[in-house]
């Protein structure tokens, strides 16, 4: 997880058909697509190429540029390292690749994790890039995500900005006094600033919340604007997982 998580960077404003789809349709589409990907046998290489092509089409339609996606893909780095190590560490029969003896099973396992994780990550990146976080949560609420969790998530998003901003300030303050996190001895310093950060952000949000409660807020934002989806919109969103399913079926023939 790299720095710079402020969610202003996640969403790319736009007016494509992908942007305009109701959030619940996109959510279902992405989850269904990922399920198809995960269920695909690791040796059906052409199917994975087909899935990748599908995501490229979605990205092109939504106007999301490759550099943006590549930058965001760094989140899967730890597992990429694991996947790359697999061919060296796995037991079993070995093949020679470019002069190195590698485990066949390890190669396949590494490929499996790499391919599926990457497709899942890119699908999620596209979802977040075309849907505002608040709207995405409304979509999740429509899909019967428990109200309490939606509420926690709403507060979380509101606090996240405050916290990230405060963290950046405190980091600057620390580093301008020649502090850098180098070893375990510095954990207490980070921990103390974490505690201070917590109280600073809490007190900012607490008063707003009390004022909301006083006006009858009971945990759900009154939804005045409707986000219901038409059958047509479900149809469009459905093309992603359905095409993926068709690709899977095709590869089985």
């Amino acid at each position: 997880m790299g720095a710079g998580h402020a969610h202003g960077r996640l969403y790319r404003a736009g007016d494509s058909i992908v942007h305009r789809l109701p959030p619940q349709c996109k959510l279902v589409a992405v989850v269904a697509f990922t399920l198809v990907v995960v269920a695909t046998d690791r040796e059906r290489f052409p199917a994975f190429a087909g899935y990748a092509a599908l995501l490229i089409v979605v990205a092109a339609v939504a106007g999301i540029r490759p550099p943006f996606i590549l930058r965001r893909m760094t989140v899967e780095l730890p597992f990429v390292l694991f996947a790359v190590a697999l061919p060296f560490l796995s037991p079993g029969p070995r093949v020679e690749v470019l002069g190195v003896w590698l485990s066949v099973d390890g190669l396949l396992a590494g490929w499996n994790i790499l391919a599926k994780a990457t497709l899942g990550v890119v699908a999620s990146i596209l979802l977040a890039a075309t849907t505002e976080p608040r709207i995405l949560l409304l979509g999740a609420a429509r899909l019967r995500l428990p109200q309490l969790m939606v509420q926690i998530a709403m507060f979380m998003l509101r606090y996240a900005d405050v916290i990230v901003e405060e963290m950046r300030r405190m980091k600057v303050a620390r580093e301008s006094r020649a502090f850098a996190a180098r070893n375990l001895k510095q954990v207490p310093v980070i921990a103390r600033s974490a505690g201070a950060l917590f109280i600073r952000s809490y007190e900012r949000g607490e008063r707003v919340h009390l004022a909301m409660l006083s006006r009858g807020y009971t945990g759900t934002f009154p939804v005045i604007d409707d986000i219901s989806a038409s059958r047509w919109q479900w149809g469009i969103a459905g093309t992603l997982p359905l095409t993926a399913l068709a690709i899977l079926a095709g590869s089985l023939l």
Binding site: R207, V208, M212, G216, Y217, P222
Partner: peptide
């Protein structure tokens, strides 16, 4: 509340004033 900035959090005045009665 004492600080109006704690009380007003919606994008427009109209939405802010509507927040309470909409909750009702």
């Amino acid at each position: 509340f004492q600080d109006p900035d704690d009380q007003l959090f919606m994008p427009t005045v109209r939405e802010d004033v509507a927040f309470g009665p909409a909750n009702l």
